[in-house]
């Protein structure tokens, strides 16, 4: 078990470095740079307008990010700054360190993601159980049709229809901004619904497989009811594999927040990233990409470990089977 964890972490380190290298070279190769962009603007507007980036500040940035040094020094300075949490000044917001920008925005994105995953998990378990117990009835087919529709449509299209119905027609919920709990409802639903599609379907199939297995016959032979079968045996065995589905879902969920934050005007991390990308704010792009990579890899590792912990065969012996 320990060997497995060590190997996984090693892969994570390699993957992390690979992500940073690729990002670094892509940014370098991109036409136009923040410095050039601002020097150009600074040239025409002279010092009449405070653009936020003065000549002196620029030199500081050059120094901080070793912009005149060989590539590997530059690359490593990005990675090192990130790892040591000395994420320096961003180009776009030179007076605010990237770290504090991320600190302001990251919790919002994570909160949104966690809320969505919770809502999605609960709803998909309910949908899956209902469909599996009512196998091949119209309840089953209807639930699963909705599930397929959910998977087929991305969060931002679902958001359109949610905004339209609950914001424009019914005026029940706000569609823009981020000031209170009611502002969370539509974004969370938009993010959760596509996940319910695949998770609910998975839940149903997995539960149905369990319900058709031989040890369920034993439960009935003991005098168990459908309730005993589903809640005492079926659910626990189907929840286990569901965890493996949640992992990859989390990654796509983090990406889903990118659209949703932009559409609902939520000042989260994804919003920060897209602004950074359009302004060519390298430190910010680098740091947020690395953070996302870390989150996604970390989530997957955690999911695998939790899975291992929950399955007694793996927990007690270190391997499955």
């Amino acid at each position: 078990m320990l060997k497995y964890v060590v190997r996984r972490v090693l892969y994570m380190v390699i993957a992390f470095l690979a992500v940073s290298l690729v990002t670094y070279f892509l940014m370098k190769a991109a036409p136009g740079s923040f410095l050039a962009f601002n020097q150009f603007l600074g040239g025409i507007t002279a010092a009449s307008i405070n653009l936020g980036v003065t000549q002196q500040l620029m030199q500081e940035l050059v120094k901080e990010y070793h912009l005149n040094s060989p590539w590997y020094v530059q690359w490593w300075s990005y990675v090192w700054n990130f790892l040591s949490l000395h994420m320096g000044a961003s180009f776009e917001y030179p007076n605010t360190p990237t770290l504090s920008l991320i600190r302001q925005t990251f919790p919002i994105s994570v909160g949104l993601a966690l809320m969505s995953i919770t809502v999605a998990t609960v709803l998909s378990i309910i949908a899956g159980v209902v469909a599996a117990v009512r196998e091949n009835t119209w309840v089953d087919r209807g639930t699963m049709l909705v599930a397929i529709l959910g998977t087929a449509i991305p969060a931002y299209v679902i958001a359109v229809f949610l905004m339209l119905v609950f914001g424009v027609w019914l005026h029940w919920l706000p569609v823009l901004g981020f000031k209170g709990i009611q502002y969370y409802v539509l974004p969370v639903l938009s993010l959760a619904l596509p996940m319910i599609g695949s998770m609910g379907r998975y839940m149903r199939n997995s539960l149905m497989e369990t319900l058709h297995s031989e040890y369920i016959v034993t439960v009935y032979a003991k005098g168990g009811s459908l309730k005993n079968v589903v809640f005492g045996h079926g659910l626990r065995n189907s929840l286990l594999p569901l965890i493996t589905v949640v992992g990859p879902q989390l990654a796509s969920l983090m990406m889903g927040t990118v659209f949703i934050e932009n559409m609902f005007g939520i000042p989260g991390m994804a919003h920060l990233f897209t602004t950074a990308a359009s302004m060519r704010d390298y430190p910010l792009i680098m740091d947020s990409t690395l953070l996302y990579a870390l989150v996604i890899m970390g989530m997957n590792l955690i999911v695998d470990l939790v899975y291992g912990f929950l399955d007694p065969r793996i927990r007690k012996t270190g391997y499955a089977g």
Partner: peptide
């Protein structure tokens, strides 16, 4: 039943 290992829930 015939095969006790498949007729018992492996996770309980």
């Amino acid at each position: 039943f015939q095969n006790p290992s498949t007729y018992l829930n492996p996770t309980k």
